[in-house]
Write a protein that binds this DNA or RNA. Structure first.
Lengths: 215, 215
DNA sequence: TTTTGTATTGAATAATCATTCAATTTTTAT
DNA sequence: ATAAAAATTGAATGATTATTCAATACAAAA
């Protein structure tokens, strides 16, 4: 059976970014298991079975369950970050179109689906007791907020909007997203991605009254 | 040692609402333990110790750990409900003052503190896997939303506001509250109760432009 | 092919924890 | 005061689970 490193050029050292298939298989399996069974019921045995490796290997590969969970959260965080980072960087696109893309991304089915959300909230629920979880979440939030404020600031200038500061708009948006994600988990029949997205657009419409693209 | 029922009139049957001291002691201890250690690390032994009863008794009294957790969530939910129910019912108070009281309540230190929030989120994180948790949370949300929409509807009439429907305003507020609670957990230095409350007031200011009380 | 090093297995271990229940204490009724 | 009933204890049980590690499979080198 072939269960070794991938991309490993023969006789050459693996680069630092090269990671074994099993590493990623285990992270995927962890996220899937949390989504399917909840964090409380996520055991190394379940994860290993889903990743199709032995239980002993899963532990060996990540040194501990704790470490596997942290790596999975980090992966989730990186994945999300990649999705918005590139939108913020599209400097040639109009700021308002850019923020609309951010909103679309935050409520795309790839990001805002019950499985992903339940995993996020599972980690959130432990944030108070695990400094490493907190650090990952805080870092993520900080960069997102920073970029968001900058973007809102541009829009405020264009729209000549002075009543609401970039920080206020950014924080309000951010909290709405978190809250709506939670509600998607509770009642996906009512809180469809479309519903949530429109609610947020409507919020922006209340701030930028003359801007039709939010309607 | 005196460890029996309270309020029990001699020779009379205990009324249905009469509940033993130990019952409440155990629920309080459960909530405190979840707040201090997290749901994952909340064991019957820890709860019993905190409630100063034996481990065997805790289990006996609630039949199972699961049942104890459900009772604790229900208690938390009832406690919160009591805090807003009476505000919604103050029909002699101006609707805008009433909604401001709702906001003040949602960000009062009794409701929006890290301990309580962490317990809520602990339960939220299991909602997808425990129908009984989901039912309690959904019922709560439903009544709250219903009352909130009615209140917003009154305000819309007074303010002659037609752009934003009561449902939209209510949902936006509700998601903001959930999101901000989450953020209080992450970074209470930045997200003080005052900060959160003002952010929400500012949102209402954006809807009811001519109403100074939200400023 | 043989040797050597690495990857992977799976069964054993030890710790944790919910639950049970016989024994004990406390309360109530007579 | 005594007996009967109810409340409460705490130690034992059995199930679950992370972690370890000796044994095996595999890949690369010679």
């Amino acid at each position: 059976m072939m269960k070794a490193l991938v991309n490993k050029k023969s006789s050459e050292q693996a680069s630092e970014t090269e990671i074994s298939v099993n590493h990623q298989k285990l992270i995927d399996a962890t996220i899937e298991t949390i989504a399917k069974r909840g964090l409380a019921d996520t055991t190394i045995a379940h994860v290993a079975k889903r990743a199709k490796v032995s239980q002993g290997y899963a532990n060996f590969r990540f040194k501990s369950k704790d470490n596997l969970l942290i790596s999975s959260l980090q992966y989730l965080s990186d994945e999300y970050k990649k999705s918005w980072q590139k939108i913020f960087e599209e400097k040639n696109i109009d700021p308002i179109d850019r923020i609309i893309r951010i909103i679309q991304n935050d409520f795309s089915s790839k990001i805002a689906n019950r499985n992903k959300i339940s995993v996020w909230i599972a980690f959130y629920s432990e944030v108070k007791f695990r400094p490493s979880y907190l650090a990952i979440c805080q870092r993520q939030d900080e960069i997102y907020s920073q970029q968001m404020e900058k973007l809102v600031s541009e829009i405020n200038n264009i729209a000549n909007q002075k009543e609401f500061t970039p920080k206020e708009v950014s924080e309000t948006y951010h909290s709405m997203v978190d809250g709506l994600w939670q509600r998607i988990l509770f009642d996906p029949k009512i809180y469809t991605n479309e519903f949530c997205k429109n609610l947020v657009l409507k919020y922006f419409k209340s701030i930028y009254v003359n801007e039709d693209r939010f309607a």
